[in-house]
Structure formats: C-alpha cells, structure tokens
Design a protein around this nucleic acid. Structure first.
Length: 951
RNA sequence: GGGCGAAUAGCUCAGCUGGUUAGAGCACCUGUCUUACACACAGGAUGUCCGGGGUUCGAAUCCCCGUUCGCCCACCA
C-alpha cells in the first residue's frame, strides 16, 4: 500500500482518463491502492464514539471485532474469506448510516510464536534454555516487532475497511493490564484455583494444554493384553488390556468391576508387576467396564486422568514414571519403578522394549489391532501425554450459565443454527479450563509466592517484589497464561476495559456480530460470551456468524503443508481485490465451504473478474453515451414523462434493493434485545445479496434497459434527458448496492457519474459513506407492461435462431399481445423491432388459419401470454422438402410435449381438492396456464395440418 | 459410542413454511467482431431431485428405514 501524500491521486490513468480513452477492460491494479489511500486520508473508516446514540449521538453503533490473526501470520485465503465477510457487513452498515466500527488487531499467539522462535534458535545452534527467559522474551518481542503485523498491511490491500487507528495487540500494556485485571478478579471471586491433577502435556512444546488444545486423531494402534501374576500364587493372575504398556511401571492397582464374578475372589489380593516387580492390589471400582477388554484395568494415576480419579477414591499413590520430555524416568522415591536400562528412553522406544521384555517373560498374552483416538498437540501435532501436575484452572460452570441462557433465550443467535446445539451441548458439560502454560511467551501469571514465610499465594494487579507478611523477596509464578485467556477478553479489552468509563466501551459495547470459523467455537467464541457476561454483564455480540472453510477441488482444507493454498496477494495482483472478494462472497452460502482450485486461478476468479469488466463497461457506456453534462435527479422528472421501460427498470432496482435487504437480513434484534424465532435464521445470506446485485446489473440493466435506451439517447431532446436521468439513477443505485462487495471498482465508477443538475451532491465525497440505496416510497404503475417487450423479443430471437436467419435481415413479425398488454403494445412495438431487427405488426387476434401469412405458412411461439408469429416466407429463402419434413417432426414433438403438460394442468384443475385447498393465486396461475397451453396446442395443430397434412 | 448435517444437471451449489414445465454460475454445443463489453452477445442441450417405504388430491420439499460422505462431541482402558 502506498502511503498517501495528502493530495488527490492523479497518477492513475483509469481515474482521470476521458471517457473515450478508457480501456475496455477494468484494470484493478491501476486504481485499488490509490483509492484505499484516499479512503485512509479521508478517515472514512474511523468510528467516533460521540456520534453513537448511546453517547447522545444520532447513529446506531455497529461493532465487529476482528478475530486477531497471529501476529507473525501471513495472509492466506482463510483470512481473506473471514475478513471479506466482516468487511462486507461493516461497509453495508456504514453505507446505511450506522457508526460502524471494525476493530482490527493481532494476537501474540503464545505457543505458535514461541515455537517459531525456538525453531529459529535451533537453526542457529542455540535454544531458549541457553538464552534464558529474559533474553528469549526480548528476542521474541524483537521478532514480532520486525515481522509482525505484516498481515494487517495485507488486509488493507484486499480492501479491509477496519479502523486502523484502533489497532490492538494482545501484548501491549493496556491489553496486558486487562488480562491481569481479569485474572485477579476471578482469583478474588474464587473462580481461579490451583489444581493438582492429570492434564494434557505436550512433551515437545513442554507445556500443559487445555482440553480444547489437545485434539483427537483417530489412530490405528494396538491393544496389549498383559498378564500380572498373583504375588502368592504365580501360576495364576489377571490379564489386563492396555494401549500404553509402558505405563505399567507406574501402576498402583488393577481395578475390576465390583459385580464381575470372574474376579470377585481376587479383589484385595496382591499382584506383581512384570519388569519392575512392584506389588499392587486388586481393587473393585465401578469405573471398570466388565464387558470391555479383559474386564480388568491397570490403574496408573499419574499418567491417566481417569486412573487418577480411581486412585483418589482408593487413596492410592501416584508414582510418576516419565519426565517432562516423555522419557522414562521415575521421580523421587518412585525412581526405582523404572529399571536402569529404561531410564531416559523415549516413551515410544520404551513401549517397544517393554513389549519385548514382556514377551520374553511370557507375560504378553496377545496383541490385537485397535482403532482409537489419540490426543495430539494442536500446535505441533505431537502425541499428548497425560501428566500429573499443578496448574491454574478457571471454574467454568458459573461462567457458562449466562452464556447458555444467552443462546437459549435468543440474546445471541449462532448461524448456521445447527451450531447452537453443539454450543449448548458443550457448555452443559463444560469442564474447568486449564489456563497456565509452561511457556515464556505470553502474559505471566500474576500470582506471587513467598518462599520464606509460606503465606498463601497472592494474585496482584501490580508487581510484588517483597512479601507483605515477612518482607522477604517475593517470587512471581513462572508460568504464562493460555493465549486464549487474553483472546477471550478481546471484545472488551480492545474497547478500553477495565476502564468502564472509556468512551469506546460505552459507545460500542455490546457489539453486533462475530465472524469466524466453527473450529474456534469453543476455544474462543463461547469464552468471549462468558467473559462478556462476567465482566460487563452482557453478551459481546448478538450474532455469531460461522462461515465455511476454503478448500481445494478435492475438498481438502487449504494448508501450507499440503501445498494446496492460494496466495490472496497473487489473486489481488492478477485479478484485483474486488475479484477476490466477489468470488468469496458469491460462492459462500451460509456455513458452506468455499471451493477454489489452486491449480487454476483463472477458473476460480474469472467469473468475478468478468463481472467487474461488465460493470466497468456499463460505466464506459454511461460516460460515453450519457456524457459528462449534468443530469436531472430522478425526483425532478415528471412521472408522466417516464416510459414503460423507465418504470420497469426502476421497479427492478427497487426489487434488487429489497432482495438484498432481505438477504442481509435484520441488522439487530428488536427493542426486546432478543431474536425472535423467525429472525434467528434470517439474513446473513451474503451470496444471495451479491447475486441480487449481479442480476440487476447484468440481466436487467445491461441486457434490457441499456439496449432500449440507446435510440432514445441518440434521438436527443426531452426524452433523452429522462433516459439519462433514469440511467444514471439506476447505475448509482447499483453501485451503492454493490459497494460492500466490490468497493474499489464501485468507488471508481461512482466518482465519474455526471453531476446532478440541481447542484445537490450524491451524499458524501466517497461512495463508501454516501448512503445505502432506498426503495422508492411511492411506486410508479406501468412497469409490468415491459414484460411484453421481453416476451416478444425472446420469442422473435428464438425463431430467428431456429431458422438461422442472418443477423442483419429485417423480418416482419405479427404480435398478438395478451389481453392485459393490448393497450400498451403499440407503445412498445418500436422498441421490440429495434431489439430484434424486425418490423412489428400488432394485432388483437392471431391471424386466421387460412390466411396468407399464418397457420401453415407461419411459425408461432407463445411466451408468457404473448404470441409471436413470423411468416415462413420471412424465415426461409428457399424451402426445401427436407426442411419441411424436419419442421414437421419438430412441430409434432412440440405438440406432444405441450399437450402432455396441458393434460397435467387440466387434471389438476378438475381435482376439487386442488381448487378448494390450494392458495387462490396458485389456482389462478394454473387457470392462466391452461388458457395459454390450450391456445398453443390449437395453433400447433392447425399448423401441422396445413404444413404436414393430416395424419 | 453419542449427536448433527449433507446427498438435486459433467462440476459447485439455490430451491423458504408441500402447489406453474426443478433453477443459477462454470463447463459444453451452434451462431455473431450488432457502434459499452468476445472477460461479450444471441440461442441451445443436459436431471430415476441417493435407494426403498409412508402421509397427501399433490412430495425435490414432510415422516420412517437404509446407503454413502462430512462435521462436532466422548475417560471405554
């Protein structure tokens, strides 16, 4: 992005060229960065708290907080999709007059960033251990300083209209203060506690993980059946089944179900562990499922969360037999549990060796294939090891309660709504959140200990250096907080919390929509809702919009490791940001994945590019044909001077606006603050909105209105002025409508519209803030009559094409309009002729069967009640017998088809259940259809008789 | 193991609370450099609406069963 120099950009030829010098295709690269710079210079994207109703202003706030990308991330298509959606919403509301605030920012991304820097250090032959904590943090901060935030720059080049004056970063002082405040408050409320339990541990990242961070992967493993002998009767014993035989060194018992008669006699007796010879009891516990495996479970409290619970119930010890790097190593008095030859051996290597040892001892009964889920670290994919340790936890149940209510009562809706069930299910069974990480990069846990007097640990908003009880040096907790512990505060911290008097917080909280992918529903979305209620007493947003994933043609998620990604920057360069945005939005049904072909960018992005070119050429047409002279505003045009075509296109514009409004949906819940059942699923159909705009521009404005208006413009005079006014009005409306999706080209073209003759401005200096298009309050009658033109033209073209009539040849056509069009038909004859190279003769009845230019010697079609008749003499220079035979075959087929449909319609109409029960308009429609079809059958029959003889 | 979703044209998908001849974009075929646009225009072909039952005057749409795919959750060692 080139920084603005404060003066209007004039370098770009596309922006300044005279109309007739404009290239025939739109070149995005010529204009996009310059336009963005102008928006920035004008501050169009900066929100002001003072203008918001909550602050006594006159605008509704509309707030979206950007899911902060990892500070070191590079923009990929997933970001592109996510931010395009947000930008469309923000631009829509900004156009509509809301005080739209889109808060951007980045996340320090604890584990992810630390891993990157550790890799760098490894490449340099160093390590974080060698560097030490302070130096490592400084090094990481410096890395972030130099490479961080690049993604935000990239977001600008795809047009993201975020308020960059409010850019946030989770590790800045204000954000860190919010994190500390939140922790201390929860600590004081007793909602943060120190827990001694088995947690997920990543032996590569060397830190604990939350439940959500340890992802399940289905893995083909093995189930080992191992025999533990009775201490006093080695000939007998119990066979246990396990997927992790290496943990047997830490076993403290074998549990059987109390009701399991097979083992009843053994409960209370001692078993001897193979390999280390430790004696352990047989216990009875409900946890054991008699039907699974052998019905006997080895209990390893320190290395399995369930076993830990069993161990607690039976007051068993919890010997640790693995170290932090998941190597076999006993701790303290349990050191002997790991035999010397296994000490320091990696867990998987140890598993292989132990299995061999068991086999040698005859303790391995059998090994069977076993499909099961194994948890992996979500950052490095290492198999997670359950590990007994002390961690900080947040008690979640009380926080979850209002978050559950919010969705149940409609304060928040989740779209697509099927995710609401997933959300509720998760929150109902929520477990406490492990928030401490044994990392260095992040917010340090604000808890202080005194090692000399042993007073209770204190959580503090400020740094404590000496113990308040005994004056000895205090020690801060070494751990940092889960990255998501700062993320969950994002909607409030970016607005100024904990300063509840902050203008931004008062003006823009609660916000409106959260746009993200479903995979972080639990990580982030639900936790933000919980923190919003706990710290601010209200939800952070009323709508959670979960969009799909960008995938390749094999439906694989785009990823760096698969090499199937698309670089959005490439797309911007080749096709422009608007084409990228268009493709994303147009291809995105609610919650539906977007499929793009990384091997064929042309295939993926050409439709968007083509639409932009179409729009561009409509603009060229306007500039060349309408000229730069001022045009009258529509309000200054006397209604009676509007032609049928004018009325029609104005209707179509209104319809497109209305359709877009419905597609985008209700902006916010009503005064009750809760969504109604109907509203819950309404709106946010960005694809339908974009399509409504495209159809208007291309299929109505360009395909029909533009063509009808050409002769009027050429003729000049008062009617030409009317046409110019309508044309410019419609294009203006279309650009406003499409601006949120394709802001760059829309802004470019809008700037070139001729001025209004009454000297009024079209809104603001930039399209982006100039107002959402409005449906006319007083509709005009008569637009419907234009349907005659469409029907007639389609019919004539169809016939001409069928008979391969040369494009230049003028054909005489007889038109029989439907009863409703009869009055207006004469007004439209000329237009129809001009669009089809035809001379049009309008009659109120079809030509007589035996007439010179009808029946046998004419071709006729019926479209929407309009009958089009063209004499065969007009269509054929020389009629061959072969042609006639072919024509007969064709006509008979058409007759058959038509008669079949007619039969169906008649059967329906003669059915009393239908006529009495179906909606009146449906029945009327069927009656009209019957008339049309009957006419057509009649005409075809006559024609076949005449042309092909009776048969 | 539990829950949820999807299956419609060659491809990607629309088809709301059942009711005209099931649509769009892309791809395909035939014409056309028609003075905004060949990144365009005009016309055209294309479907056992996954299979099987049921409800109904009427089912792509509602119900049941099955098949296939996908997603979420889960301590079966």
């Amino acid at each position: 992005m080139t920084p603005t120099d404060g003066t209007p950009t004039s370098q770009s030829p596309a922006l300044t060229a005279a109309a007739d010098e404009l290239p025939t295709t739109y070149r995005a690269a010529d204009v996009e960065s310059a336009i963005y710079a102008r928006w920035q210079a004008a501050g169009t994207d900066v929100a002001q708290a003072a203008r918001v109703t909550r602050m006594g202003g006159d605008r509704d706030p509309y707030t979206i907080v950007m899911p902060p990308p990892n500070v070191t991330a590079i923009l990929h298509v997933g970001h592109g999709l996510n931010n395009t959606v947000q930008d469309v919403l923000i631009r829509w509301r900004r156009m509509a007059g809301d005080e739209a605030l889109w808060v951007p920012g980045t996340d320090h991304a604890g584990i992810a960033t630390q891993n990157v820097v550790e890799k760098q250090l490894a490449a340099e032959g160093s390590s974080r251990g060698a560097l030490g904590r302070a130096a490592f943090v400084a090094r990481t901060a410096q890395f972030v300083e130099t490479t961080g935030g690049q993604i935000l720059q990239q977001l600008k080049s795809i047009g993201a209209s975020a308020d960059w004056t409010r850019t946030a970063y989770t590790l800045t002082d204000p954000m860190s203060a919010a994190v500390t405040e939140a922790f201390v408050r929860l600590f004081e409320d007793g909602l943060v506690y120190r827990g001694h339990r088995v947690i997920h541990w990543c032996p590569r990242c060397m830190t604990s993980l939350s439940d959500e961070e340890a992802e399940f992967n289905d893995t083909q493993g093995a189930m080992y059946h191992i025999r533990y002998a009775l201490a006093d009767d080695p000939a007998h014993g119990i066979t246990v089944a396990t997927t992790r035989p290496e943990t047997l060194l830490g076993d403290v018992a074998v549990a059987v179900n109390p009701t399991d008669e097979r083992y009843a006699a053994l409960v209370g007796r001692q078993l001897v562990l193979p390999i280390n010879g430790v004696r352990i009891p047989v216990i009875a516990d409900d946890y054991t499922d008699a039907a699974f495996g052998t019905g006997a479970v080895k209990i390893t409290p320190a290395h399995d969360p369930n076993d830990f619970e069993v161990g607690k119930r039976h007051a068993l010890s919890a010997p640790i037999i693995m170290d932090a790097e998941a190597r076999m190593n006993g701790a303290g008095e349990d050191a002997d549990r790991v035999p010397p030859e296994l000490r320091g051996v990696d867990r998987f290597e140890a598993r292989a060796r132990i299995v061999n040892m068991l086999r040698d001892q005859g303790a391995l009964v059998k090994v069977e294939a076993h499909q099961h889920s194994v948890r992996h670290c979500y950052r490095c994919d290492t198999v997670v090891e359950p590990r007994l340790s002390d961690q900080w936890f947040v008690t979640m149940a009380p926080l979850a309660k209002p978050a559950l209510e919010a969705v149940r009562t409609g304060r928040i809706r989740i779209m697509p709504d099927r995710w609401e069930a997933v959300y509720i299910n998760w929150l109902e069974g929520i477990r406490d959140w492990n928030i401490s990480r044994q990392l260095w990069w992040g917010h340090r846990v604000p808890v202080y200990y005194c090692d000399s007097c042993g007073t209770a640990p204190k959580a503090s908003r400020t740094t404590i250096t000496t113990c308040s009880d005994c004056g000895a040096p205090a020690r801060q907790d070494a751990d940092v907080l889960d990255t998501w512990f700062s993320s969950w505060l994002w909607p409030i911290s970016t607005l100024g919390w904990p300063n509840e008097a902050a203008d931004d917080l008062k003006a823009f909280y609660p916000g409106d929509v959260l746009v993200t992918a479903p995979e972080i529903l639990f990580f982030w979305v639900s936790r933000m809702i919980m923190s919003g209620y706990h710290f601010m007493g209200d939800a952070p947003y009323h709508t959670v919009y979960l969009h799909g994933t960008v995938r390749d043609m094999q439906h694989r998620k785009m990823s760096k490791s698969l090499g199937n990604g698309i670089d959005p920057m490439d797309v911007v360069q080749l096709y422009g940001a608007d084409a990228l945005r268009w493709t994303m939005v147009a291809g995105m049904g609610l919650g539906v994945d977007v499929l793009l072909d990384p091997t064929d960018l042309e295939k993926s992005f050409a439709p968007g590019r083509n639409f932009l070119t179409k729009l561009w050429n409509i603009g060229r047409f306007l500039l060349t044909k309408v000229g730069t002279e001022s045009v009258q505003p529509l309000s200054a045009i006397a209604p009676e001077s509007l032609t049928i075509a004018d009325r029609w296109i104005l209707d179509r514009l209104d319809a497109a606006i209305a359709e877009a409004n419905v597609a985008l949906g209700p902006v916010r819940p009503g005064p009750s603050g809760r969504w109604t059942e109907a509203e819950r699923t309404a709106g946010m159909r960005l694809d339908a909105y974009a399509d409504a705009g495209r159809r208007f521009v291309w299929n109505e404005l360009a395909d029909w209105y533009l063509e009808t208006v050409k002769p009027r413009l050429a003729a000049g005079g008062a009617d030409a002025e009317v046409a110019r006014a309508v044309l410019v009005h419609c294009f203006d409306g279309a650009l406003r409508l499409l601006q949120p999706v394709i802001p760059f080209i829309a802004e470019t073209l809008w700037a070139k519209l001729p001025p209004l003759s009454d000297g009024t401005a079209r809104g603001a200096a930039f399209l982006t803030t100039s107002g959402w298009p409005q449906v006319r309050t007083v509709p005009l009658a008569g637009g419907d009559a234009f349907e005659l033109v469409r029907n007639a033209v389609l019919g004539i073209r169809q016939i001409r094409n069928e008979y391969k009539v040369k494009p230049g040849k003028v054909v005489a056509v007889v038109l029989v309009p439907s009863a409703t069009d009869r009055r207006t038909a004469p007004l439209l004859a000329e237009t129809i002729g001009a669009l089809t190279r035809a001379t049009v003769d309008i009659r109120s009845d079809a030509p007589a069967p035996a007439g010179a230019d009808s029946g046998a010697s004419a071709h006729q079609v019926l479209i929407g009640g309009t009958e089009v008749v063209i004499a065969l003499s007009e269509l054929r220079e020389a009629e061959s017998a072969e042609d006639a035979a072919k024509e007969c075959v064709r006509l008979r087929a058409e007759l058959n088809q038509t008669a079949k449909i007619l039969d169906g319609v008649r059967a329906k109409l003669s059915n009393e259940s239908f006529t009495s029960r179906a909606k009146p308009e449906v029945v009327d429609g069927a009656r009209a259809q019957e008339r049309d079809l009957a006419q057509k059958v009649d005409a075809l029959t006559r024609k076949i008789e005449a042309l092909c003889g009776t048969r």
